[in-house]
Design a binder for these strands. Structure first.
Lengths: 203, 203
DNA sequence: GTCTATAGCCAGATAGAC
DNA sequence: GTCTATCTGGCTATAGAC
């Protein structure tokens, strides 16, 4: 039997762990730091999650499950290509402005441990390009958009939307922007990115 | 007086450290692992570089100094906008196919420690958007390209070229590509990316 | 310059009282 | 479930012989 206090402790830990892991990664994070962030005794971390590795995996899967549905809207919804591009660019950027460390965290850990993707693929709703590929090939053959491979277009859509968050520290430096100015630039991208892509693929 | 053997040891360490740090990051790397990779006694790492932190900084600055000139070709060379986009997309992708972990390594560590950018900015030849901004504004006012802000275009150019390397593990999963197939896709991007951008900004 | 041995510290994990 | 105390191992860094 689990009472309210238990749920609260487990969730406090998971949220604290998310903040610390997103910032420092698996190897840079300290269990003590997570405990402090959660305002909870360090032993309780082990009581609830057994080990640092298991706590990390819980955080990682939660993070990935936030990202996957967004990608699936591009790959598997029944919107038109234009609507997908417009909606995804708008929604994804809005979402990321609230969770700016998420893509960096996920990609960082996957680069460090590429085999982890294999585990993720078996999960329900792991994004897959097949339907999108059919949609693009159809649109090309019907001359609704210029000839372009679905894989290249898909990579472009993700690149234009995700990179501004991953590359933020560097981009801020290159373009001489304060945090506030950079946030403004990101906000503009909610519509800019879709316009950029659509202008490129229209006939 | 430094003889050949010294130089060799120092370089062996730096190269080994680069490989390990690029893979595991500062906090995930172990001095013993770097020593093994360099086939050298662990004490020598401290003899030559004093501490892990200093060794890391040497590796990081070397890496950044490889990246910066490439960015400066876009920002500060006197090529036309089209030539810049075509040449950068081609050269950068060729370069990154040889150093695929470089952008991930740099962005990872900058995200973990954003203040580090401030140190980099003081370095000679730190990329700056000013000249590029002038060039774009001129081209827009002369109606050579459609209206677009220099910052947004610059972010797009970097995003389309860099993200496919940082996001590789995830993208491979989404588009069901083997390492070999993904490499083929990246190779195509040497020309695809430039085409995609130019189609979007032409009038 | 290169090695072995070890100091000194810190992190993850557990034992056990309450 | 929650706490304190502590074990155990691994890591950076250094001392000191050669």
């Amino acid at each position: 039997m689990i009472n309210n206090k238990d749920i609260s402790a487990e969730e406090k830990i998971l949220n604290a762990a998310r903040r610390i892991f997103e910032n420092k990664g698996m190897s840079g994070a300290r269990m003590q730091e997570i405990a402090d962030e959660a305002k909870i005794n360090k032993s309780l971390l082990h009581y609830y999650y057994r080990s640092k590795q298991l706590l990390f995996e819980a955080v990682f899967k939660t993070a990935f499950n936030k990202l996957a549905p967004q990608i699936n809207l591009v790959l598997n919804s029944d919107q038109s290509i234009c609507d997908k591009i417009i909606n995804f660019s708008n929604n994804y950027t809005s979402f990321m402005l609230k969770h700016p460390y998420l893509p960096n965290f996920i990609l960082q850990e996957l680069n460090r441990n590429p085999d982890f993707v294999k585990e993720l693929i078996s999960i329900d709703n792991f994004p897959n390009i097949i339907n999108f590929k059919i949609q693009i090939e159809k649109a090309v053959s019907e001359e609704k958009i210029r000839p372009i491979e679905a894989e290249q277009l898909f990579i472009n859509i993700l690149a234009l939307n995700i990179f501004p968050f991953i590359g933020a520290p560097l981009l801020k430096g290159f373009i001489n922007a304060s945090d506030k100015e950079y946030k403004k630039i990101l906000n503009k991208r909610k519509t800019e990115v879709a316009e950029f892509i659509i202008k490129s693929i229209k006939l």
